[in-house]
């Protein structure tokens, strides 16, 4: 068996299209997942039952089901209830974003709870309302503690983006499949895809290690 990557390099265009697709869905899910997660996390933190219970159900449901099942549900099942079709990108983004929202909600909640009550008391003593105290005093401090966990979430989202290939969304793995089936070179094609993912993710992983070390040192 001889390795021959020439057949992969000939298809650089296809891989670039795939990389663009991967980055697009990653960006969408990162923004949607982490911002929705903050809202759900605040709901989980709230003492108001009407916020707390729905947020808890959301978190428990999306944390305790596989994300691939969620994506397929949005792709095959949801359109039946809607008057329109759902694109592969929309279905995969919905599944990954909601799943990430549920996981990041717990990060936000944990981060907010880790801030000492004295900070709340101080903010209140200065005449701040709840929303002001949260925005100006609590969240900025909590974010620093949450940063390593949120970076890990981003890494997970990047890896999860490959699941979009299950609904034929054009991303890196999907393009790898295409190249492998056109050129009969699965070894080179899938090795190339694995290496590309490693190259994208390795710096991110090192960055998360750096953040973790810095946090441990600072606290």
């Amino acid at each position: 068996m001889r390795w021959d990557f020439a057949s992969v390099f000939d298809n650089t265009d296809a891989l670039l299209v795939g990389a663009a697709g991967t980055l697009r869905i990653f960006a969408i899910c990162l923004v949607l997942g982490l911002s929705l997660g903050l809202i759900v996390g605040l709901g989980r933190y709230s003492r108001n039952r009407w916020l707390h219970i729905p947020a808890t159900i959301f978190v428990e449901f999306f944390r305790n089901t596989p994300v691939l099942v969620q994506i397929l549900w949005f792709y095959f099942a949801l359109p039946i209830l809607l008057p329109f079709q759902i694109s592969p990108l929309a279905a995969a983004s919905l599944g990954i974003s909601l799943n990430s929202a549920a996981f990041s909600a717990e990060i936000y909640r944990g981060g907010i709870q880790s801030i000492e009550t004295g900070q709340w008391d101080g903010a209140r003593a200065l005449g701040m309302r709840w929303g002001q105290a949260m925005r100006r005093i609590i969240l900025p401090q909590a974010l620093k503690r949450m940063l390593p966990a949120l970076t890990n979430r981003a890494i997970e989202i990047f890896k999860m983006s490959t699941l979009a290939s299950a609904v034929a969304y054009v991303e890196l793995l999907q393009q790898g499949k295409l190249i492998a089936s056109l050129n009969y070179n699965p070894i080179e094609a899938y090795t190339a895809v694995a290496v590309i993912f490693f190259v994208f993710l390795w710096p991110l992983v090192q960055f998360s290690y750096f953040l973790e070390r810095r946090l441990r040192r600072d606290e």
């Binding site: 699941l163 699965p186 070894i187 899938y190 694995a194 993912f197 993710l201």
Partner: peptide, 18 residues
């Protein structure tokens, strides 16, 4: 660091040939 689905495809489609 790599996505599990990529690993699975590698072990299923590439390794047997290798």
């Amino acid at each position: 660091t790599t996505p599990p689905l990529v690993q699975l495809f590698w072990f299923f489609f590439a390794l047997p040939i290798l």
